[in-house]
Protein backbone atom coordinates (compact mmCIF):
# COMPACT_ATOMS: atom_id res chain seq x y z
CA UNK A 1 0.00 0.00 0.00
CA UNK A 2 1.20 3.47 -0.84
CA UNK A 3 2.53 5.31 2.22
CA UNK A 4 0.26 8.28 1.48
CA UNK A 5 -2.85 6.11 1.74
CA UNK A 6 -1.57 4.56 4.92
CA UNK A 7 -0.86 7.93 6.48
CA UNK A 8 -4.26 9.30 5.52
CA UNK A 9 -5.94 6.43 7.36
CA UNK A 10 -4.35 7.38 10.67
CA UNK A 11 -6.68 9.41 12.85
CA UNK A 12 -4.46 12.43 13.31
CA UNK A 13 -4.16 15.73 11.45
CA UNK A 14 -1.28 15.72 9.01
CA UNK A 15 1.59 18.17 9.22
CA UNK A 16 3.42 18.29 5.95
CA UNK A 17 6.48 20.39 5.14
CA UNK A 18 7.79 21.61 1.81
CA UNK A 19 11.39 22.51 1.13
CA UNK A 20 13.44 23.06 -2.01
CA UNK A 21 15.97 20.34 -2.76
CA UNK A 22 19.52 21.68 -2.79
CA UNK A 23 18.76 24.63 -0.52
CA UNK A 24 20.33 26.23 1.49
CA UNK A 25 23.28 24.13 0.31
CA UNK A 26 23.45 21.39 -2.27
CA UNK A 27 23.75 18.42 0.07
CA UNK A 28 21.24 19.41 2.76
CA UNK A 29 18.44 17.40 1.16
CA UNK A 30 18.79 14.12 3.04
CA UNK A 31 19.57 15.67 6.41
CA UNK A 32 16.49 17.91 6.23
CA UNK A 33 14.25 14.95 5.39
CA UNK A 34 15.66 12.83 8.22
CA UNK A 35 15.37 15.63 10.77
CA UNK A 36 11.81 16.41 9.76
CA UNK A 37 10.77 12.81 10.30
CA UNK A 38 12.61 12.59 13.62
CA UNK A 39 10.75 15.64 14.83
CA UNK A 40 7.35 14.18 14.07
CA UNK A 41 6.46 15.62 10.67
CA UNK A 42 3.94 13.37 8.91
CA UNK A 43 4.76 13.92 5.25
CA UNK A 44 7.29 15.83 3.14
CA UNK A 45 7.12 17.62 -0.21
CA UNK A 46 10.54 17.77 -1.78
CA UNK A 47 10.71 20.66 -4.23
CA UNK A 48 12.46 20.04 -7.54
CA UNK A 49 13.80 23.51 -8.35
CA UNK A 50 12.76 25.20 -11.61
CA UNK A 51 14.06 28.32 -13.33
CA UNK A 52 10.59 29.79 -13.85
CA UNK A 53 8.30 28.81 -10.96
CA UNK A 54 5.07 30.56 -12.02
CA UNK A 55 2.97 29.67 -9.01
CA UNK A 56 5.55 30.60 -6.38
CA UNK A 57 6.13 33.78 -4.44
CA UNK A 58 9.51 35.40 -3.78
CA UNK A 59 10.63 33.08 -0.97
CA UNK A 60 10.34 29.82 -2.90
CA UNK A 61 11.55 31.50 -6.10
CA UNK A 62 14.70 32.63 -4.36
CA UNK A 63 15.31 29.19 -2.87
CA UNK A 64 14.88 27.60 -6.31
CA UNK A 65 17.27 30.03 -7.93
CA UNK A 66 19.83 29.36 -5.20
CA UNK A 67 19.36 25.59 -5.43
CA UNK A 68 19.99 25.70 -9.18
CA UNK A 69 23.06 27.86 -8.60
CA UNK A 70 24.23 25.30 -6.07
CA UNK A 71 24.08 22.76 -8.88
CA UNK A 72 20.87 20.88 -8.21
CA UNK A 73 19.53 18.77 -11.10
CA UNK A 74 16.90 16.07 -11.43
CA UNK A 75 19.50 13.31 -11.69
CA UNK A 76 21.43 14.62 -8.74
CA UNK A 77 18.30 14.72 -6.59
CA UNK A 78 17.55 11.10 -7.48
CA UNK A 79 21.09 10.22 -6.56
CA UNK A 80 20.87 12.00 -3.20
CA UNK A 81 17.64 10.15 -2.45
CA UNK A 82 18.70 6.69 -3.58
CA UNK A 83 19.06 5.28 -0.05
CA UNK A 84 16.47 7.45 1.63
CA UNK A 85 14.16 4.53 2.41
CA UNK A 86 16.84 2.98 4.62
CA UNK A 87 16.33 5.78 7.11
CA UNK A 88 12.96 7.42 6.43
CA UNK A 89 9.48 5.85 6.38
CA UNK A 90 6.99 8.75 6.12
CA UNK A 91 5.41 9.58 2.74
CA UNK A 92 7.65 11.54 0.38
CA UNK A 93 6.22 13.58 -2.46
CA UNK A 94 8.13 15.32 -5.22
CA UNK A 95 6.78 18.72 -6.13
CA UNK A 96 7.89 20.65 -9.16
CA UNK A 97 7.02 22.00 -12.56
CA UNK A 98 6.31 19.79 -15.53
CA UNK A 99 9.09 20.79 -17.93
CA UNK A 100 12.01 19.19 -16.03
CA UNK A 101 9.96 15.98 -15.74
CA UNK A 102 9.16 16.07 -19.45
CA UNK A 103 12.83 16.52 -20.31
CA UNK A 104 13.88 13.68 -18.02
CA UNK A 105 11.25 11.52 -19.70
CA UNK A 106 7.97 11.05 -17.86
CA UNK A 107 8.18 7.26 -17.71
CA UNK A 108 11.88 7.28 -16.75
CA UNK A 109 11.07 9.84 -14.05
CA UNK A 110 8.22 7.78 -12.62
CA UNK A 111 10.28 4.62 -12.71
CA UNK A 112 13.07 6.31 -10.79
CA UNK A 113 10.58 7.60 -8.23
CA UNK A 114 9.33 4.06 -7.64
CA UNK A 115 12.87 2.69 -7.26
CA UNK A 116 13.66 5.30 -4.63
CA UNK A 117 10.37 5.03 -2.79
CA UNK A 118 8.69 8.29 -3.73
CA UNK A 119 4.96 8.05 -3.09
CA UNK A 120 3.43 10.86 -5.05
CA UNK A 121 3.90 13.84 -7.34
CA UNK A 122 2.57 17.39 -7.34
CA UNK A 123 3.07 19.08 -10.71
CA UNK A 124 0.91 22.20 -10.68
CA UNK A 125 1.26 22.92 -14.40
CA UNK A 126 0.36 19.42 -15.54
CA UNK A 127 -3.34 19.92 -16.18
CA UNK A 128 -6.01 17.35 -15.39
CA UNK A 129 -6.99 16.55 -18.99
CA UNK A 130 -3.41 16.10 -20.20
CA UNK A 131 -2.66 13.90 -17.20
CA UNK A 132 -5.65 11.69 -17.82
CA UNK A 133 -5.05 11.37 -21.52
CA UNK A 134 -1.31 10.80 -21.53
CA UNK A 135 0.18 10.06 -18.15
CA UNK A 136 -2.27 8.51 -15.70
CA UNK A 137 -1.46 4.97 -16.82
CA UNK A 138 2.27 5.60 -16.35
CA UNK A 139 1.85 7.13 -12.88
CA UNK A 140 -0.29 4.17 -11.83
CA UNK A 141 2.13 1.63 -13.26
CA UNK A 142 4.83 2.96 -10.92
CA UNK A 143 2.53 3.30 -7.93
CA UNK A 144 2.61 7.09 -7.84
CA UNK A 145 -0.23 9.14 -6.43
CA UNK A 146 -0.83 12.33 -8.47
CA UNK A 147 -2.06 15.25 -6.45
CA UNK A 148 -4.25 18.01 -7.92
CA UNK A 149 -4.82 21.52 -6.67
CA UNK A 150 -8.10 23.33 -6.08
CA UNK A 151 -8.51 27.02 -5.21
CA UNK A 152 -11.35 29.23 -3.93
CA UNK A 153 -12.15 29.99 -7.58
CA UNK A 154 -12.49 26.34 -8.62
CA UNK A 155 -16.10 25.58 -9.50
CA UNK A 156 -18.01 22.81 -7.73
CA UNK A 157 -18.21 20.87 -10.99
CA UNK A 158 -14.49 21.07 -11.50
CA UNK A 159 -13.85 20.06 -7.89
CA UNK A 160 -16.03 16.97 -8.40
CA UNK A 161 -14.09 16.15 -11.53
CA UNK A 162 -10.77 16.53 -9.71
CA UNK A 163 -12.05 14.47 -6.79
CA UNK A 164 -13.03 11.69 -9.18
CA UNK A 165 -9.59 11.78 -10.81
CA UNK A 166 -7.70 11.82 -7.49
CA UNK A 167 -6.61 8.89 -5.43
CA UNK A 168 -4.93 10.19 -2.31
CA UNK A 169 -5.63 13.73 -1.22
CA UNK A 170 -6.57 17.06 -2.77
CA UNK A 171 -4.20 19.98 -2.34
CA UNK A 172 -6.44 22.81 -1.28
CA UNK A 173 -4.84 26.17 -2.04
CA UNK A 174 -6.00 28.45 0.76
CA UNK A 175 -6.56 31.64 -1.21
CA UNK A 176 -6.12 33.20 -4.60
CA UNK A 177 -2.39 33.64 -4.38
CA UNK A 178 1.04 32.37 -5.19
CA UNK A 179 2.95 30.68 -2.38
CA UNK A 180 3.98 32.69 0.64
CA UNK A 181 1.67 35.62 -0.06
CA UNK A 182 -0.17 36.11 3.19
CA UNK A 183 -0.32 35.39 6.84
CA UNK A 184 -3.45 34.53 8.68
CA UNK A 185 -6.85 33.48 7.42
CA UNK A 186 -9.96 35.64 7.34
CA UNK A 187 -13.67 35.02 6.89
CA UNK A 188 -13.29 34.26 3.21
CA UNK A 189 -11.03 31.33 3.91
CA UNK A 190 -13.29 30.08 6.71
CA UNK A 191 -16.23 30.06 4.32
CA UNK A 192 -14.18 28.33 1.63
CA UNK A 193 -12.87 25.68 4.04
CA UNK A 194 -16.45 25.00 5.14
CA UNK A 195 -17.81 24.91 1.60
CA UNK A 196 -15.29 22.26 0.61
CA UNK A 197 -15.82 20.29 3.79
CA UNK A 198 -19.58 20.27 3.11
CA UNK A 199 -19.00 18.81 -0.34
CA UNK A 200 -18.07 15.52 1.34
CA UNK A 201 -15.42 14.65 -1.23
CA UNK A 202 -14.08 11.15 -1.53
CA UNK A 203 -10.49 12.39 -1.07
CA UNK A 204 -9.36 14.15 2.09
CA UNK A 205 -8.02 17.69 1.66
CA UNK A 206 -4.73 19.08 2.77
CA UNK A 207 -4.46 22.86 2.86
CA UNK A 208 -1.45 24.71 1.53
CA UNK A 209 -0.30 28.30 0.87
CA UNK A 210 -0.32 30.86 3.67
CA UNK A 211 0.27 28.50 6.60
CA UNK A 212 3.13 29.75 8.71
CA UNK A 213 2.61 28.96 12.40
CA UNK A 214 0.62 26.87 14.85
CA UNK A 215 -2.34 29.24 14.71
CA UNK A 216 -2.80 29.06 10.95
CA UNK A 217 -2.13 25.32 11.11
CA UNK A 218 -4.99 24.92 13.62
CA UNK A 219 -7.32 27.03 11.52
CA UNK A 220 -6.53 25.17 8.34
CA UNK A 221 -6.97 21.74 9.87
CA UNK A 222 -10.24 22.48 11.65
CA UNK A 223 -12.05 21.13 8.58
CA UNK A 224 -9.24 19.70 6.49
CA UNK A 225 -7.20 16.57 7.06
CA UNK A 226 -3.90 18.37 7.19
CA UNK A 227 -1.81 21.32 6.14
CA UNK A 228 1.39 22.00 4.22
CA UNK A 229 3.93 24.62 5.22
CA UNK A 230 6.40 25.85 2.62
CA UNK A 231 7.57 29.46 2.52
CA UNK A 232 7.64 29.86 6.29
CA UNK A 233 9.91 26.83 6.59
CA UNK A 234 12.20 28.06 3.81
CA UNK A 235 12.48 31.42 5.56
CA UNK A 236 13.37 29.60 8.76
CA UNK A 237 16.05 27.58 6.98
CA UNK A 238 17.45 30.77 5.50
CA UNK A 239 17.64 32.48 8.87
CA UNK A 240 18.49 29.65 11.25
CA UNK A 241 20.13 27.06 9.03
CA UNK A 242 19.51 23.33 8.81
CA UNK A 243 20.48 22.35 12.37
CA UNK A 244 17.40 23.75 14.08
CA UNK A 245 14.68 22.03 12.06
CA UNK A 246 13.24 20.58 15.29
CA UNK A 247 12.68 24.04 16.68
CA UNK A 248 10.51 24.98 13.69
CA UNK A 249 8.44 21.81 13.89
CA UNK A 250 7.91 22.19 17.67
CA UNK A 251 6.66 25.72 17.06
CA UNK A 252 3.92 24.41 14.78
CA UNK A 253 2.94 21.47 16.97
CA UNK A 254 2.67 23.40 20.25
Amino acid sequence: MNRIHQKLQEGKKILSLYFTAGYPTLNDTVKIIQDLEKNGVDMIEIGLPFSDPLADGPTIQASSTQALKNGMTTSLLFQQLKDIRKSVSIPLILMGYFNPVLQYGVEEFCKKCQEIGIDGLILPDLPLDVYQENYEAIFKKYGLVNIFLITPQTSDDRIRQIDAASDGFIYMVSSASVTGSQDGFGNNQEAYFERISDMRLKNPQIVGFGISNSETFQQATKHAKGAIIGSAFIKFLTQKGVDKVGEFVKGIQK
Binding site: A55, F98, P127, L149, R158, V178
Partner: peptide
Protein backbone atom coordinates in the same frame (compact mmCIF):
# COMPACT_ATOMS: atom_id res chain seq x y z
CA UNK B 1 0.24 24.41 -27.89
CA UNK B 2 -2.22 23.41 -25.19
CA UNK B 3 -2.73 25.02 -21.80
CA UNK B 4 -0.17 23.87 -19.23
CA UNK B 5 -1.35 26.09 -16.42
CA UNK B 6 -1.66 25.69 -12.69
CA UNK B 7 -5.20 25.22 -11.46
CA UNK B 8 -5.22 28.79 -10.10
CA UNK B 9 -5.35 30.09 -13.67
CA UNK B 10 -7.87 27.54 -14.91
CA UNK B 11 -11.11 29.50 -14.31
Amino acid sequence: GGAFIPEMLYP
